[in-house]
Design a protein around this nucleic acid. Sequence first.
DNA 1: CACGCTTACTCGTATAGACGAGTGGGCAAG
DNA 2: CTTGCCCACTCGTCTATACGAGTAAGCGTG
Lengths: 262, 262
Amino acid sequence: MSPLPSGLLGDLDPTSDRAVFRQIADQLREAIDRGRFREGEKLPSEAELVEHYGVSRMTVRNSFSVLTGEGLVHAEHGKGVFVRPRPPVRRLASDRFARRHREQGKSAFIVEADAAGSHPTVDSLEVKEEKPSQDISTRLGSVRRVLARRRRYLLDGRPVEFATSYLPLDIARGTPIAEPNPGPGGIYARLEELGHHLDHFEEEIRARMPSPAEVKLLHLAAGVPVIHLIRTAFDTEGRAVEVCDTVMAADAYVLSYQLPAT
Amino acid sequence: MSPLPSGLLGDLDPTSDRAVFRQIADQLREAIDRGRFREGEKLPSEAELVEHYGVSRMTVRNSFSVLTGEGLVHAEHGKGVFVRPRPPVRRLASDRFARRHREQGKSAFIVEADAAGSHPTVDSLEVKEEKPSQDISTRLGSVRRVLARRRRYLLDGRPVEFATSYLPLDIARGTPIAEPNPGPGGIYARLEELGHHLDHFEEEIRARMPSPAEVKLLHLAAGVPVIHLIRTAFDTEGRAVEVCDTVMAADAYVLSYQLPAT
DNA sequence: CACGCTTACTCGTATAGACGAGTGGGCAAG
DNA sequence: CTTGCCCACTCGTCTATACGAGTAAGCGTG
């Protein structure tokens, strides 16, 4: 095995208090930050780093696990450890539910993705009636049963978000909203047609690490958090007519809001 | 060492494809989710789990590192591994910069924390003139030098957020905005007094894992992401008069926005 | 009673070795 | 040339061991 190019990575400081695996992680992180390793590029293999630093393999792996946890790199079995590329982000503007966008026909997700030149897909559509969780029930004004619409969104084949809309049964049952495809403009257009004129939305945003189920659904790499967004739609009478619970791959999104200063 | 209470944790499935350390992590995660271990409670020690499952210590540690990365547990040297308590969250409403809030005197952070019964602190205040990054410069309309105001916010002694405000020098130099304490109502009140009437804000929100520097500043546990918020304030003439770059401990915040449906 | 030491238990760090499994290139057989 | 196998290299998992260092409780001494 040929040695690493000299100067690419430094030496260890045996007098330092800092653990060896942290020193190695620090050097790799710095090399990445400085662009010595670019996005998608392969880092030195475990064996090469063992050789270079004169440490055991577990110590090198420990360093990698630090960087993996930071979302900086990811390992591919049989291939190597690579600098994690930053995927293109999708920008969600706060006016994405404005009435004028609903008048077009296709859903906001499809329109926006097409405009950005990506290939959008929606899958695992499920529409069913169910008993809501305590939280959802409270948000909808203590309803006992709801219509739940679940779907997952993909961009160019990569899952980026999944969402569940909950609507009170007395509003949604027997309407196009209960159909797999609710028609042009989505369920908000249907709600307005049914006489529930939308007044405003309230969005709650959290960020956290994903559950194992979320990791699977969104194909998340280690070190990628999720953005958890809960939107409640209110009609002009002040009634909550829909709650939408969305989990997004955080590395695929920037949320953008416009706020009045008054 | 006394064995674990039977039934608390299950057995391994040697026929399973799933790695042993993942099986152990799964069982611990499920026990936590079911409330068998409560917030702040100590999990069985590494030695106890080694005994219970009949595996080596590194395998048990590997399981813990999975849960740590998910933000579910945290280890304390010399004490044990504990279920990570969910700290109280601070809710940031989208009207937190409304003009009426500025008329009180104290800063939004202090007022809100007092109301919630917590003890707020602001530290590491630094005010200086500097050359802005490319990004900040662009947001402010290609200015060459800015006034930067840095500060860190703590609740009951725990750091929860740090922020830097950038203002064009031609606006801020020589005004109370350049003082360590800008006075009642904060810099937004001063901006309005100086004739820059605020029209609206734009906020960009991202979530990601923290850098090592951010881990230090916010005392973040492993598995806690940060929310990165960049707010630009525009005056009634459409000029960007301030950019505020904020990094928040994600486990301490819920952001809340009200959006018109029109 | 108060202080300090000892001790047992905890997690942190590191070594050395073994085997498994995914990947991809090269080589030999057809 | 194409196909298929083998092999070298990669990371994944697991064991066994060793020592270091933080914590807390108990115990003995002053």
